[in-house]
Deep mutational scan, measured.
Amino acid sequence: RNRTTFNSSQLQALERVFERTHYPDAFVREDLARRVNLTEARVQVWFQNRRAKFRR
């Protein structure tokens, strides 16, 4: 699988949700994935990586 590149509008939407919660539930992830046209799995991994970055 190739690395996913996120465009600025996708990142903006992802970061907005991250500000609200670092652990979005499945419903939030599904909705977000639909809105930014990504798979739920990509959204889930983005949050895992974003939390790791946040802890650094």
Rank of each mutant, 00 (worst) to 15 (best):
R1S: 14
R1A: 09
R1I: 13
N2T: 13
N2S: 10
N2Q: 06
N2F: 06
N2D: 13
R3H: 10
T5H: 05
T5I: 14
T5C: 09
F6V: 11
F6H: 06
N7M: 01
S8C: 07
S8R: 09
S9V: 12
S9Y: 09
S9P: 09
S9D: 12
S9K: 14
Q10I: 11
Q10D: 06
L11R: 07
Q12H: 09
Q12N: 13
Q12P: 01
Q12A: 10
A13S: 06
E15N: 01
E15F: 02
R16S: 14
R16K: 14
R16H: 13
R16L: 12
V17Q: 09
V17R: 00
V17G: 02
V17W: 03
V17E: 10
V17N: 06
F18S: 05
R20Q: 15
R20M: 11
R20W: 11
T21W: 08
T21E: 07
T21Y: 07
Y23T: 06
Y23L: 06
P24G: 03
P24L: 00
P24H: 01
P24E: 02
P24T: 06
D25Y: 00
D25P: 07
D25H: 02
A26L: 11
A26P: 12
F27H: 12
V28H: 03
V28R: 04
V28A: 10
V28E: 14
V28Y: 03
V28W: 03
R29E: 00
R29Q: 05
E30F: 05
E30A: 09
D31C: 09
L32Y: 01
L32R: 03
A33K: 01
R34M: 03
R34L: 07
R35P: 05
V36G: 04
V36A: 11
V36D: 05
N37C: 03
N37A: 03
L38N: 08
L38C: 09
T39L: 05
E40M: 10
E40R: 05
A41F: 05
A41S: 10
A41N: 07
A41W: 08
R42W: 07
R42N: 11
V43N: 02
V43R: 01
V43T: 00
Q44S: 12
W46V: 00
W46G: 02
W46A: 00
F47I: 04
F47P: 02
N49K: 13
N49W: 09
N49C: 09
N49R: 07
R50G: 01
R50A: 14
R50C: 06
R51V: 06
R51K: 00
R51D: 07
R51T: 02
A52L: 08
A52E: 15
A52Y: 06
A52K: 06
A52P: 01
F54L: 12
F54K: 02
F54N: 09
R55D: 03
R56H: 06
R56V: 10
R56I: 11
R56D: 15
R56S: 15
